[in-house]
């Protein structure tokens, strides 16, 4: 899994930095950061990515709306998406997965867990 390109969508700079820090364990990976859903959609128009990691609670456009729009777009509909959020209730998890996210991780995150989930998602991806 070398040279993977990630889009990290997070309004919290602390979490963006922590996620990026964890992702750097993938050799040669490229990380594109976005602060909300709208920013993420803009970045997707100009950047080629292999996976999206998104928070749910963000200003301007939340993560669930982003997942839904990414799945509706022909260019991006097959992109693996992992939701990383403080919303840990089962109904939130079900909602995220029903919208088309490939995996759902509750905060606080464990770096090793995040990397394992990414590995699993990439393995299952078409």
């Amino acid at each position: 899994m070398e040279g993977l390109r990630f889009l990290v969508v997070e309004d919290s700079p602390t979490m963006r930095q922590l996620i990026s820090f964890s992702l750097k364990r993938f050799k040669g990976c490229k990380i594109v950061e976005a602060v909300d859903g709208v920013d993420a959609l803009k970045k997707l128009q100009t950047e080629e990515v292999d996976m999206i990691l998104t928070d749910i609670n963000m200003p301007v456009m939340d993560g669930l709306k982003l997942v839904s729009l990414v799945r509706q777009n022909a260019k991006t509909r097959d992109l693996p998406i992992i939701i990383i959020t403080t919303e840990g209730a089962q109904e939130d998890r079900d909602r995220g997965l029903a919208l088309g996210a490939n995996a759902y991780i509750s905060k606080p995150i464990q770096s090793s867990h995040l990397l394992k989930v990414i590995g699993d998602v990439i393995e299952k991806a078409p």
Binding site: S12, P13, T14, M15, T86, P108
Partner: peptide, 14 residues
Amino acid sequence: HIVMEIIINLIGAE
């Protein structure tokens, strides 16, 4: 704000 982010995201307080 950063202290709050740390408490929410890294410690997991509601």
